[in-house]
C-alpha cells in the first residue's frame, strides 16, 4: 500500500513549526529511511501517517484513505507503529497477551490471533518466552517484543522509530533479518534512524529532513554522495562512505562487499 503526503505543514501548540510544506510519495513495498538531526521533523512526519497528528495544512493519504476522514483506530489497520521507547506501547502481563492485543482489537478470530502470535514471536526469536512478563525482559528485548506486537497487526505499512537503538550486534542482525523478510512480503516499510551504517545497507531510498523540510531524497548512493548537503543537515555518512571519501575513491560504497570491489578497482587504476 502506498502513502502520500501533499504540502503538509504542522505546528505544535508551543509554536514550533515542525513540518513546513512537506510532499512525499512512497510507493507500495518500498523500504525507506528518514534521517535528520533531533528536532528535524522526522517523528512528526511519521505520526501524521498513523493519524496520531493531523496536518494543519495539506493532506495525507494512506492508500485510498484521506487520514482526515479516518480515526487513528481505523488507521491502525493499515499502519503499524513501533515507538522509539518500547515501554510506551507495552502493558500486558505476558508476551503472548501483548502480541495478541493488536490483532484481537482489529477483529481477528481467536485461531487467527494464536497463529499470528506464534508467528510474530518466532520472527523476533522470543517464542520460548511467550508466558514471561514483558518487564522481565531486558530493554533491547522489550523492543523486539514491541516489534513482534507491531508485526502481528499484519498491516500493509510499518513505521519503525529507531529500531536498532540499544541493540547489540545480534539484535541488529535480528532486526535486519526481520526487515528483509517483511520487505520480501511486500510490506511498505519506513524507518527513522540515526544508525547510518544500518540505513545505508538496508534502505532503498533515503529522505533527509532539515528544519521541517525535505532536504535530500533519493537512492542511498545518490543521497550519501552529497557531502555538503548532508553536512548542512548534520547527518554523517556511514563509515564506509567516509573511508572512501578520505581515500578520494570517488565512490559511495554501501556494504563491505561494495567497498572491497570499489577499492580493488581504484587500486588498479592508481597503480597504472
Amino acid at each position: 500500500m502506498n502513502l502520500r503526503a501533499e504540502g503538509v505543514s504542522f505546528r505544535y501548540p508551543s509554536g514550533v513549526l515542525a513540518l513546513d510544506g512537506v510532499s512525499l510519495d512512497i510507493p507500495s513495498g518500498q523500504l525507506l529511511a528518514i534521517l535528520g538531526e533531533n528536532g528535524a521533523g522526522k517523528t512528526t512526519l511519521v505520526k501524521l501517517f498513523n493519524g496520531l497528528l493531523r496536518p494543519a495544512q495539506g493532506s495525507v493519504h494512506i492508500g485510498d484513505w484521506d487520514t482526515a476522514q479516518h480515526s487513528p483506530a481505523a488507521l491502525a489497520s493499515r499502519v503499524g507503529f513501533l515507538f522509539q521507547n518500547p515501554d510506551d506501547q507495552l502493558f500486558e502481563r505476558t508476551l503472548a497477551r501483548e502480541v495478541a492485543y493488536g490483532p484481537r482489537n482489529l477483529g481477528a478470530s481467536e485461531a487467527e490471533v494464536a497463529h499470528r502470535v506464534s508467528r510474530a514471536l518466532k520472527l523476533v526469536g522470543l517464542q520460548d518466552m511467550a508466558d514471561a512478563h514483558p518487564y522481565d525482559l531486558p530493554a533491547p528485548q522489550r523492543k523486539l517484543l514491541a516489534l513482534a506486537a507491531t508485526i502481528a497487526m499484519d498491516t500493509p505499512i510499518l513505521v519503525l522509530d529507531e529500531p536498532t537503538i540499544g541493540q547489540d550486534e545480534l539484535g541488529c542482525r535480528a532486526i535486519s533479518r526481520i526487515l528483509t523478510d517483511l520487505h520480501a512480503m511486500g510490506r511498505t516499510l519506513m524507518m527513522i534512524s540515526h544508525d547510518m551504517d544500518f540505513c545505508a545497507e538496508h534502505a532503498e531510498r533515503l529522505v533527509v529532513m532539515l528544519n521541517g523540510k525535505i532536504h535530500l531524497d533519493g537512492s542511498p548512493a545518490e543521497v550519501l554522495s552529497q557531502t555538503k548537503k548532508l553536512d548542512e543537515a548534520e547527518v554523517a555518512p556511514p563509515q564506509l562512505v567516509r573511508l572512501a571519501q578520505a581515500l578520494k575513491m570517488r565512490a559511495t560504497p554501501l556494504t563491505v562487499d561494495e567497498f572491497v570491489d570499489e577499492y580493488k578497482q581504484w587500486r588498479k587504476k592508481k597503480n597504472k
Binding site: 547489540d168 541488529c172 551504517d197 563509515q239 564506509l240 573511508l243 567497498f259 572491497v260 577499492y263
Partner: peptide
C-alpha cells in the same frame, strides 16, 4: 562474542 567490529575493520580484513 556478538560485539561485532567497525566497518573499517571488516573492510580491511578482506583487503
Amino acid at each position: 562474542l556478538g560485539i561485532g567490529r567497525t566497518q573499517y575493520s571488516e573492510a580491511a580484513a578482506r583487503l
